[in-house]
Amino acid sequence: MRLVELARHDHILVQVIPFSVGAHAGFAGGPIVLATVDGREIAYVDNALRGDVIEKTEDVAAIRRLWQMLSAKALHEQASIELITKAAEAWET
């Protein structure tokens, strides 16, 4: 339910890619964070071994393209929140 709480913030977007989509570009990856700091876009990527802050312009652009591809496969924000809520409620019972 913490994801649902975070999704209430205007600057946070939570989207879920359902298993029914099958394999996709982010299947083996972890969370992606895109942020603007002092007018520059940076990225943070996380995996099982470590997290990395990406600052090189070309690399941030590649992460943004990956995010766009994943977002296109994901449920809309509200549908994602409903799915998370339903899963959390099922887990509690």
Rank of each mutant, 00 (worst) to 15 (best):
residue 9 H to E: 12
residue 13 L to S: 14
residue 84 I to T: 04
residue 91 W to K: 14
residue 41 E to P: 10
residue 21 V to T: 14
residue 79 A to M: 14
residue 24 H to R: 03
residue 86 K to C: 11
residue 47 N to Y: 08
residue 74 A to I: 02
residue 6 L to S: 13
residue 20 S to W: 03
residue 79 A to Y: 07
residue 38 D to H: 10
residue 88 A to R: 06
residue 80 S to P: 02
residue 31 P to V: 04
residue 45 V to E: 11
residue 75 L to Y: 01
residue 70 L to H: 03
residue 37 V to R: 01
residue 37 V to C: 03
residue 18 P to W: 07
residue 74 A to T: 04
residue 27 F to E: 14
residue 7 A to M: 00
residue 61 A to E: 14
residue 2 R to V: 11
residue 22 G to Q: 02
residue 79 A to G: 11
residue 75 L to S: 05
residue 80 S to K: 00
residue 29 G to N: 05
residue 35 A to Y: 01
residue 31 P to M: 10
residue 79 A to W: 08
residue 18 P to T: 04
residue 12 I to D: 00
residue 87 A to H: 08
residue 7 A to I: 07
residue 53 V to F: 13
residue 53 V to E: 13
residue 58 E to K: 06
residue 90 A to Y: 04
residue 71 S to T: 11
residue 54 I to L: 01
residue 37 V to D: 13
residue 20 S to R: 11
residue 86 K to P: 07
residue 40 R to T: 06
residue 15 Q to T: 02
residue 2 R to W: 09
residue 1 M to Y: 04
residue 12 I to A: 00
residue 24 H to K: 02
residue 27 F to Y: 13
residue 24 H to G: 07
residue 1 M to A: 09
residue 90 A to E: 12
residue 82 E to H: 10
residue 43 A to D: 05
residue 68 Q to K: 11
residue 66 L to E: 10
residue 72 A to P: 04
residue 76 H to R: 12
residue 26 G to N: 05
residue 67 W to H: 15
residue 69 M to R: 15
residue 68 Q to F: 01
residue 36 T to R: 13
residue 13 L to F: 02
residue 38 D to G: 14
residue 66 L to W: 06
residue 77 E to W: 09
residue 90 A to L: 13
residue 45 V to G: 05
residue 86 K to N: 08
residue 69 M to K: 15
residue 16 V to C: 01
residue 3 L to S: 06
residue 72 A to D: 12
residue 5 E to T: 12
residue 11 H to C: 10
residue 93 T to C: 08
residue 7 A to R: 00
residue 45 V to Q: 10
residue 58 E to M: 07
residue 44 Y to E: 01
residue 29 G to P: 04
residue 12 I to L: 03
residue 41 E to C: 09
residue 49 L to T: 11
residue 35 A to P: 05
residue 10 D to W: 08
residue 86 K to T: 14
residue 57 T to W: 05
residue 13 L to D: 13
residue 41 E to Q: 15
residue 14 V to N: 06
residue 39 G to C: 04
residue 71 S to C: 07
residue 53 V to I: 14
residue 93 T to Y: 02
residue 37 V to T: 06
residue 59 D to A: 14
residue 91 W to T: 09
residue 55 E to V: 08
residue 87 A to K: 03
residue 41 E to Y: 03
residue 70 L to R: 10
residue 52 D to I: 13
residue 20 S to A: 15
